[in-house]
């Protein structure tokens, strides 16, 4: 089992993702420079957080033209796992691998804090080790995390159970108060129809150590590694 973490100019959560895969998942992992075009040796690709290309034009808009993104599209089409976190989620939306878009936060501020998210669907490779409706404490750090999509897309997301995480209260209640950025229907993370591509704004790789205030993120990474192990065996 091998993981790859893509590095764009301006990525800054690549080392956190690398650390979690090597230390907590205990699997081999490589950094992959954005000019790479061969991903054949990997089982899962992480598109990490940060400010690829300085967020020029729109967050994630320019990264989608990096050479590696064509390889990522092919990789996803083969059913392999592509996990976008924060800027990675924005890039996957811009690249058309996930529906919708991420806009400026409703309150305009850059928000950096721990939030609660509820697992809405635990039948995905990213959540199958977690109880449904379990509340996870995971930090967010973004200015453009306001998930938008048209009505038709939203109904499809709901119908096909593609909404994987929603911002919620500590007790799991989904309310306007627990929505940090104005995201439609408190959406914090979604997957594609085939469930192999997932994007989320919160940073599970920053919630894998007790010292950092939460290790709830480990459950997501444990799910991914078990899903790969099941596929490979």
């Amino acid at each position: 089992m091998k993981f790859g973490v893509i590095v764009f100019p301006g990525s800054n959560c690549d080392h956190d993702a690398y650390h979690v895969i090597s230390k907590h998942v205990g699997q081999p992992v490589d950094f992959i420079w954005h000019k790479e075009t061969d991903l054949s040796q990997y089982d899962a690709i992480i598109v990490p957080g940060g400010f690829s290309y300085g967020d020029y034009l729109r967050a994630g808009a320019l990264a989608r033209f990096s050479p590696v993104m064509n390889a990522v599209k092919d990789f996803a089409a083969e059913g392999k796992f592509v996990f976008g976190i924060c800027n990675g989620f924005q890039i996957l939306c811009e690249a058309g691998l996930l529906p919708g878009a991420l806009m400026r936060n409703e309150g305009l501020h850059f928000i950096c804090k721990h939030v609660n998210i509820r697992v809405e669907n635990n039948e995905t490779p990213y959540t199958n080790e977690i109880e449904e409706e379990k509340v996870l404490s995971i930090p967010i750090a973004h200015a453009e995390g306001n998930y938008v999509c048209d009505d038709e897309t939203f109904h499809q997301l709901e119908e096909n159970n593609q909404i994987v995480f929603r911002y919620c209260e500590e007790d799991g209640g989904v309310s306007e108060d627990s929505n940090p950025n104005g995201s439609r229907s408190n959406i914090a993370g979604i997957c594609n129809l085939d469930r192999n591509v997932l994007g989320m704004m919160p940073h599970p790789e920053r919630a894998c150590e007790e010292l950092l205030g939460s290790n709830d993120g480990r459950e997501i990474f444990r799910s991914i590694s078990n899903s790969i192990a099941t596929l490979v065996s």
Binding site: L57, R58, A61, F65, C93, E94, P99, G100, A101, M103, V148, C149, D150
Partner: peptide, 8 residues
């Protein structure tokens, strides 16, 4: 293809 995101 580049300047606008047709979703928004």
């Amino acid at each position: 293809d580049v300047l606008a995101n047709p979703v928004i």
